[in-house]
């Protein structure tokens, strides 16, 4: 089970809450202070994308964020409940569907669709920020998995 799990209604105002919680748990898990800004930004981008997908597809289910503390790494999973290939997921190099096939919807030329280009920009920021990132998509929805190394917490007296 996740160290901390968060579910929130797909509303823009809750994305900030997810950022704050993720940063707090990451700090506790021993993620380097210098990297916390990146964690905050990456989880915000992933949640923004999930909120957008839920809203454009009229999905009332909440967005799910799992924050998992392991011995040597801290992982974040942001899950949406939009089935099929998320638009733009193919834009991230190396991103595959669960069946291992490259996803359709790679970089799209300027089609004037603001929502879609925002989505691509979000993924571009995530892939630029996080070394260990995986975007998958299945019948029940998509998941963005990201992880950061942790340093062991100092032993308190």
């Amino acid at each position: 089970m996740a160290t901390v799990e968060l579910r929130f209604s797909a509303l823009p105002e809750h994305v900030r809450t997810a950022r704050l919680v993720a940063a707090a748990v990451a700090r506790r898990a021993g993620v380097d202070e210098a990297v916390l800004d990146e964690v905050r930004l990456a989880v915000g981008e992933a949640c923004t994308r999930a909120v957008g997908l839920h809203r454009t597809n009229n999905i009332t289910a909440p967005v799910r964020v799992a924050l998992v503390e392991d011995e040597k790494k801290f992982s974040i999973e942001v899950g949406d409940e939009v089935p099929g290939s998320p638009a733009g997921a193919g834009a991230v190099p190396g991103v595959r569907g669960l069946d291992g096939e490259p996803l359709p919807g790679g970089p799209v030329s300027d089609n004037g669709d603001a929502a879609e280009s925002d989505d691509e920009m979000g993924l571009a920021v995530i892939s630029g920020l996080v070394d260990d990132v995986e975007v998958t998509s299945g019948e029940t929805g998509g998941i963005i998995r990201m992880s950061w190394p942790t340093t062991p917490a100092p032993v308190l007296p």
Binding site: R19, R40, L41, G44, E45, T48, A114, S117, D118, M121, G122, A124, V125
Partner: peptide
């Protein structure tokens, strides 16, 4: 204090 891709999109707009 914080800027994400949505903000970048607005600036580009």
């Amino acid at each position: 204090d914080f800027l994400d891709s949505t903000g970048l999109g607005v600036l580009v707009g």
